[in-house]
């Protein structure tokens, strides 16, 4: 078991999709939302995931395949 902190960015057409719900049900990942801002044009959610390493990886691959952008919390860390 491990935990992972991620940020999902939803384009407007996916805001109404229950992506986080499905991540919990279909992948048996415990999702814990810490901060979010959702508007009609777009939205983001910062959350912690808890589950088996492999399952978290599969779950995040699935989230990314829906068109939701997955990033580490805190934004890109790469700098000049």
């Amino acid at each position: 078991m491990s935990t992972k902190r991620v940020r999902f960015t939803f384009p407007s057409e996916l805001i109404k999709e229950p992506v986080i719900y499905k991540l919990g049900i279909d992948f048996e990942i415990v999702t814990n939302i810490r901060r979010a801002d959702v508007r009609d044009s777009m939205g983001w959610v910062v959350l912690e995931l808890e589950g088996d390493d492999e399952i978290i990886k599969d779950g995040l691959d699935w989230v990314a395949s829906t068109g939701v952008r997955v990033d580490p919390v805190g934004g890109d860390i790469i700098e000049g």
């Binding site: 801002d37 044009s41 000049g80």
Partner: peptide
């Protein structure tokens, strides 16, 4: 006029500025 920074995929000559999801955006 948005206060949301939508991440982008960088494609620029200025590689030192190529951060698509800016932490302090």
């Amino acid at each position: 006029g948005s206060d949301h920074v939508t991440p982008v995929r960088p494609e620029t000559l200025a590689k030192s500025l190529a951060i698509g999801n800016p932490a302090a955006g």
